[in-house]
Simulated assay, not measured.
Amino acid sequence: MSEKDQQQEPPPLPDGAYAEVIGDPIEQSKSPLIHRHWLDELGLAADYRRARVGKDGLEAYLAEKRGDPAWLGCNVTMPVKLEAIRIADEATDRAVTTGAANMLVPRDHKIIAGNSDVGAVMLILASLHEAGRPMARLHLYGTGGAARAVLVAAASLGLTGIVIHARDVQKAVQLAVQFGLAYEPVPLDVRPAGDGIINATPLGMVGHDCLNCDVSKLVPEGWVFDMVSAPVETELLRAAKKRGLGIIDGIDMLVEQAASSFELFFGQPPRREDDAALFEKLRA
């Protein structure tokens, strides 16, 4: 092994090393399956778990983890993405711009808030563009952390033709102004008419109804990107599939954001060569 190779070798993991995903509810999360698959691929002696943590319990959770040398960080899901960035000691530029964190990582006795959702959304939107899917008028459901990640990613790609659908329209108006969107927000149940839909809400998740699954006014070349991953095929995606529209499910998003998180937690990137087997397990 050369001196260069020795310098690039990742530092050893602490005994009992683990990362986890937090949120409430959390039982449906597929993140442990993803990270454990990559840990096995690399032969790393570490684990990835899930823990139920709500807004009221986040500060106590982090206070406990600060004193745990085996804790390598956590992914953050609903409903604590916005709260996480407030409690963290520092935040990355993307987390600050998004106003939400989907991961917390200990570094130099501090907890740093990051956001890998933005990069994942950028990859997915870029793939849709490369496939020739139209993007002049898009409909975004939600105003939370996931929706903000979409808006940051869209801004980076120069996409401003977005209609935000929200329960709190005034909150959506503030986001529309902040990101310079071309269209005024509308209530969540307004039927979308345009090129694509991005669902960044829990609507359609197990235990939640699909409030707005009418895709009849999308163009024939249109598409639907649903961030919900449990179930994999939501009612919204079934409606899109029935019309022959392009489909991106929550598994694609989950895996892409997990890849960035994995490297920060465990010190090296995951092996992506066997992702086909991973996707098969996730969609089973």
Rank of each mutant, 00 (worst) to 15 (best):
D68C: 13
P69Q: 05
A70L: 12
A70G: 04
A70Q: 08
L72P: 06
G73V: 02
C74P: 09
N75L: 04
N75E: 10
T77N: 13
M78G: 05
M78W: 04
M78Q: 11
V80K: 12
V80R: 12
K81T: 04
K81R: 12
L82D: 14
E83G: 09
A84F: 04
I87G: 09
D89K: 10
E90V: 15
A91G: 06
A91Y: 10
A91W: 08
T92R: 06
T92Q: 06
D93Y: 12
D93C: 06
R94K: 09
R94D: 14
A95K: 04
A95H: 04
V96M: 09
T98F: 02
T98W: 06
T98L: 13
A101K: 09
A101Q: 06
M103Q: 14
M103Y: 10
M103A: 11
V105P: 06
V105K: 07
R107K: 15
H109N: 15
H109M: 10
I112M: 14
N115G: 02
N115I: 04
S116R: 08
S116T: 15
D117P: 13
D117F: 10
A120L: 11
A120E: 08
A120T: 08
M122H: 07
L123F: 07
I124M: 15
L125V: 15
L125T: 11
L128F: 12
H129Q: 15
G132F: 06
G132M: 05
R133I: 03
R133N: 05
P134Y: 09
M135Q: 15
H139I: 01
H139K: 03
H139T: 11
T143E: 00
T143K: 00
G144L: 13
G145M: 10
G145C: 10
G145W: 13
A147F: 05
A147T: 05
R148V: 02
V150Y: 02
L151I: 00
L151T: 00
L151P: 03
L151M: 03
A153R: 12
A154Q: 03
A154T: 01
A155Q: 14
A155C: 03
A155L: 02
A155N: 08
S156T: 11
S156G: 14
S156Q: 14
L157Q: 14
L157K: 05
G158P: 13
L159R: 09
L159Q: 09
L159P: 03
I162Q: 11
V163Q: 10
I164S: 00
I164G: 00
I164R: 00
A166P: 06
A166M: 04
R167H: 07
D168M: 06
D168Y: 05
V169F: 00
V169Q: 00
V169K: 00
K171G: 08
K171T: 07
K171H: 11
A172R: 01
V173T: 13
Q174F: 02
Q174C: 12
Q174W: 03
V177H: 09
V177T: 14
F179T: 00
G180S: 08
A182G: 05
A182V: 03
Y183S: 01
E184F: 02
P185E: 01
P185I: 00
P185W: 01
V186G: 03
V186K: 14
P187L: 00
L188P: 01
L188A: 14
V190L: 04
P192D: 13
P192Y: 11
P192R: 13
A193T: 07
A193V: 02
G194D: 13
I198C: 02
G204S: 08
G204M: 10
G204T: 09
M205W: 07
V206W: 07
H208M: 15
